[in-house]
């Protein structure tokens, strides 16, 4: 690609990796980890991988409300350590990130400090070696690590989200560095997430969702689906969110499905058991909940469900061997109007 078409400002720094990183750090352009210098040649290679006009605007990123052009996404992709072949996933992820339904402005500004979690489905998982198996929420796979990191750098460098000033996360959490998983479709007894949401099985998709913490839903004792789901539901107690994510490991999924639970059954079963028990909260908390959700007509006997509707629970099968699932809490409030953020799924255009 002809580098002269790139419009971003050029800076000259000594040809030394440490010097480049010191410069980027001083400018506030990193997440704290070292970056790969986004030279014209590397950015050009990224853009060439999607055959898009570098100035195509994929979306605008708050709170700066700056355009995420293909070129700007490519720069952050280089910095994050992505390979050029990841670009179609990054473009789809950026589309999801900037979709108004996700409400990124609130996610960037809130004291809650959520990460943007990406869930990848379809054939692109295998083509790019995006991990959906062992240690799926941990380290070890370049695609997972750098695709998630690129999204965070886009939030920072294009969107202008800086911790302590425009990002008001009280604590944040490690997921903010990078949180990208593939669904382990091959190990799932149910239809994959994207098929459940109307996409063809051979279409690849990226889903973006706000995720602000994770709780281990370990269960090494249960041999019945009902037991696993009952114990899982207990991990989901507490204030509700607009959605909730169950990352169910293959061993648990196999037992649950083997006992006849469809995905919809799983959601319904858990929804009926998980929640915020008003009998267990202090008086002040109860009064606040009553004020916030007058539509629920809460009493001390009420249980505020984990989401407003069972279908707002997201079920994803991921992970390797073992009986270790996790509940990932979605930032925000469920509200009578439908909630402060919603997950967004976009098809990957190859």
């Amino acid at each position: 690609m002809d580098a002269s078409v790139l419009q971003s400002e050029r800076v000259e720094v000594a040809d030394d990796l440490w010097a480049v990183n010191a410069f980027f750090e001083e400018k506030g352009w990193t997440d704290g980890l070292p970056i790969i210098p986004p030279t014209e040649a590397r950015v050009g290679q990224m853009i060439a991988a999607v055959k898009r006009n570098p100035q195509d605007v994929i979306g605008v990123v708050p709170p700066r409300w700056a355009p995420a052009t293909v070129e700007k996404i490519a720069i952050n992709a280089v910095m994050a350590g992505c390979l050029p072949q990841y670009m179609p996933v990054l473009i789809a992820a950026a589309e999801a990130l900037t979709d108004p339904k996700l409400n990124l402005y609130a996610l960037q500004a809130t004291t809650g400090g959520p990460a943007i979690m990406l869930i990848v489905n379809g054939p692109i998982r295998k083509q790019l070696n995006i991990n959906g198996g062992s240690n799926v929420l941990g380290e070890g796979w370049r695609a997972n690590a750098t695709i998630g990191r690129c999204i965070r750098l886009i939030q920072r460098n294009i969107g202008g989200s800086y911790p302590g000033t425009t990002c008001k996360a009280t604590l944040g959490w490690p997921g903010k560095y990078s949180l990208c998983i593939a669904e382990n479709e091959e190990a799932s007894p149910w239809e994959p997430f994207h098929v459940e949401h109307g996409f063809a099985a051979d279409t690849s998709t990226v889903t973006a969702i706000s995720a602000d913490s994770s709780v281990r839903a370990s269960d090494l004792d249960s041999t019945k689906g009902e037991g696993i789901l009952t114990n899982f539901a207990r991990r989901m107690d507490g204030p509700s969110g607009p959605e909730a994510i169950m990352v169910i490991c293959p061993e648990h999924a196999k037992i649950i499905a083997g006992d006849g639970f469809s995905k919809a059954d799983v959601k319904k079963f858990v929804w009926e058991r998980a929640g915020h028990r008003m009998s267990e909260v202090p008086e002040e908390t109860f009064n606040q909940r009553v004020k916030r959700r007058p539509d629920l007509k809460l009493t001390r006997d009420s249980v505020i469900p984990v989401t407003d509707r069972p279908e707002d629970i997201i079920v994803v099968v991921a992970g390797g061997d073992g009986s270790q699932s996790q509940y990932i809490h979605v930032w925000g409030q469920s509200t009578p109007e439908g909630g402060s953020t919603r997950s967004v799924t976009k098809a990957v255009q190859i």
């Binding site: 500004a109 004291t111 202008g160 000033t165 425009t166 008001k168």
Partner: peptide
């Protein structure tokens, strides 16, 4: 006042 810097950034972004 915790959101002062964010408000300034927004005013700038929207001109």
């Amino acid at each position: 006042d915790a959101f002062d810097a964010l408000a300034k950034s927004e005013k700038e972004a929207f001109g």
